[in-house]
Design a binder for these strands. Sequence first.
DNA 1: CGCATTGTTGACAAAGTTCAATTTGCGTGG
DNA 2: CCACGCAAATTGAACTTTGTCAACAATGCG
Lengths: 231, 231
Amino acid sequence: MKPTSPGALPPGFRSTFLDGLTPREIKAVLTAAKQERILPRQILQHEGDQATRLWLLVTGRVAAYRLSNDGDKLFLRWGVPGDTYGLATILREPARYIVTVEAVQEGFLLVWDLESARTLVLRYPSLSKALNSVVAEYLEGVIDVLGACAQNAKQRLARVLVESARQLGRIGREGIELELTNEQLAVAAHMSLFTASRKLSKWQKAGILTKHRGKIVLPSLSPFEKIVKDP
Amino acid sequence: MKPTSPGALPPGFRSTFLDGLTPREIKAVLTAAKQERILPRQILQHEGDQATRLWLLVTGRVAAYRLSNDGDKLFLRWGVPGDTYGLATILREPARYIVTVEAVQEGFLLVWDLESARTLVLRYPSLSKALNSVVAEYLEGVIDVLGACAQNAKQRLARVLVESARQLGRIGREGIELELTNEQLAVAAHMSLFTASRKLSKWQKAGILTKHRGKIVLPSLSPFEKIVKDP
DNA sequence: CGCATTGTTGACAAAGTTCAATTTGCGTGG
DNA sequence: CCACGCAAATTGAACTTTGTCAACAATGCG
């Protein structure tokens, strides 16, 4: 997907953030933003930094995580087109990002700086309500992740496969294709590289997935959904 | 603390939910609510149930947690006076509680039913902004809990002691007193009863806390804050 | 006193992590 | 086209942490 005229959105684009605005208002809000390309591994915001940008992911994929004291990543969620970040910019005082966000697929986003972001919420009260929904969605998502925390490694990994397939998966000949390395999966499922490798091998032997270098193919999600729920 | 005249709040009472309203508006909002006494172990809302009540804790303490598939509690946070729950009532559609909340100390709360809750947010737009702050606070809190998840049992327990002391602690002769059983601590720190008992015994031998039946006394929080951060 | 709740301790088992040694897959440049 | 080199992935073995279970001790209440 390529940024074309300013304010142009891909067909089928939907965002909770823009819900509740009239088309006219949406246009106004969008033209106040700047476009920006993103590339894999690029850090889009860093937790603890002064929050100065509110942004909307238009195309591409990102990962939101928290950094632990000893520097490893605590995965929170995948971000997909329509997701809004940098909410701290308008929600919190003092405004500091509470999570780190990194691009995982190329794409682009729309950015508002601190001043225009604050102007927007003053001018369009319905944005305030949309924000409620956005934050509530995130809250529910994080609580779900926390629920996963209580499960064992096998279930966590299965859960990550299902979630990732839903958010990042591309449909291929032999099933849903996931362009993720063992390491990325291990981070998302919050386990060591080795445990992830072992579980995946076992599932490949069981015939419910196929592995390639940097890529995994899932013919069906249902076996994994079953693993998540139960032993 | 005792409910006196309708709308009366304890001295020093503060709530993010009511922030941003004028005193006149606060009075109007409060008189639209019903008072209700709560007792320890009483379930105040149950995750998954139809969300029909928005409520504000005035006195007492509650615990918010999630129930895992196999029925054990996944602790989220302590709730203290000023905290608002049942936000799903006005934030989500369909409205279902996303967490379970249980009273741990006697107290009382103010309740709005579904209809009056929705009327309130329509009539007082500043409530909508206050809600943003409330939900953002919860989000940040849950993300912190998630961060704790990544730590080992010792750190998690130390963290629970610090948080609990801050939220529930009473100041006594020999330090901050916590009226919690080993089991409650184990649940909050997400570990087995036995691991909790062992760690606590070790800390008592080390002289940084004193144990009694159903009660723990912390002369100082700093040793535990140190444990949370590091080895 | 008798009883229920709460807490303690040890022996053992299970789940995951760590580390080291290898292997596999894949792009690059000779 | 092939060999090289690197990143990704695999595997086994030792080790650590934590959970499980059983027995028992301490506390407090009626």
